[in-house]
Design a protein around this nucleic acid. Structure first.
Lengths: 190, 190
DNA sequence: TGTACATCAGTGAACGCGCGTTCACTGATGTAC
DNA sequence: TGTACATCAGTGAACGCGCGTTCACTGATGTAC
């Protein structure tokens, strides 16, 4: 039954991929290891050939998802005709598309309150990703003193995360979209 | 074993009180009915004399907690020497005290991403509370056209919720406090 | 006001279920000679 | 290059545990007469 090194690496990659999707869709606690392994036609037992614990998977899946979010925003800022790279990123993040993509998007918005209770490694990974995302936003903002830019980027990101999280809580479609529009509009003025 | 009407009502009130505390501390999923009943020296079975399901308790505990948050902010704005009621509320919400009070504080920040996956009733209750809090913030803002005030209040609240949530994710105490300070500073200028 | 009876708050055990993790086992892969 | 053996990816069952919910039962409260 042993697999080649390449197959093993690929399996591990896929486990992280499915986990990143399921954790964002249903939350960390509500996602069991079987929910991650069975879509890959694997059994729970095999999980521990790749990871020491579920916590380790959570940390990796969160990091991986954040990397993809940052890549996606960078791409969005290049392909957009928005006033600035920052404005393009805000538009991409604070969007109905992001809100409605429950299997994808930003882990900080999809599972922020669960991450606040996660173990040390996961919280460290999430904090690092938060910082990385702040840096990317700051780099694409109009020129200001660098200290001020970073502070503005932290503020903007807090509003962006809050907006997407709350737009997902609010049932009514109009009210939900209004939250996104209000936040987008105010951040556009930065 | 039957209790008087008054005792029954008091028990019910206490269940909601403990639930509101535990849900905010450990999250909704991670809190079992026994975690709510045993601090009151009650057994799980008795729970269903007061509520039809755990979901119903979640909705009530969330509403109750939000009502207290709104009361607390209103009180804070009266007792503060801040420039405006709005500024006082921002200071009270985006604070280290709020961040560190894990058994209390705002449910939207403490369990926002879990509320996005909660049942219809809970999400409706959370959405209503979000709206109520927006209204309270808007009422205490400096004069602007009423449409603009509400939009600003939605933006501010998104940033406030995002700030407290992220400050709880970030492990490092300085970085965590910096998030709160950055957001407080930017909202102060509104 | 007193009595008979229905109600129901709370108990404690049980229901079926899924969780994260462990483990003996299988058999193909990787490696040392 | 060929062979013998160690490694280890994956299986499937089991571990102990806690979950939300149900239920028969107890006995004090509430109510109808």
């Amino acid at each position: 039954m042993r697999k080649t090194k390449g197959e093993t690496a690929e399996t591990r990659r896929r486990i992280v991929e499915v986990a990143a999707r399921e954790f964002r869709l249903n939350g960390i606690q509500a996602t069991g290891l079987n929910d991650v392994m069975s879509p890959l036609n694997l059994t729970q037992g095999g999980f521990y050939r790749h990871f020491a614990s579920k916590d380790q998977l959570v940390a990796e899946a969160c990091s991986q998802a954040m990397t993809e979010v940052i890549e996606g925003l960078t791409t969005a800022s290049c392909n957009s005709q928005a006033a600035s790279g920052f404005a393009a990123m805000v538009e991409a993040y604070v969007s109905q598309a992001h809100r409605d993509t429950r299997t994808g998007g930003c882990p900080l918005a999809a599972m922020g309150s669960e991450l606040a209770r996660a173990d040390k490694q996961t919280r460290a990974a999430a904090a690092q990703s938060f910082d990385d995302l702040v840096d990317v936003l700051a780099k694409h903002m109009a020129d200001k003193p660098s200290q001020e830019v970073r502070s503005s980027a932290v503020f903007a990101l807090a509003a962006m995360i809050g907006a997407v999280t709350m737009s997902r809580v609010v049932e009514d479609s109009d009210a939900s979209t209004a939250i996104l529009e209000d936040v987008k509009q105010h951040l556009g003025a930065m």
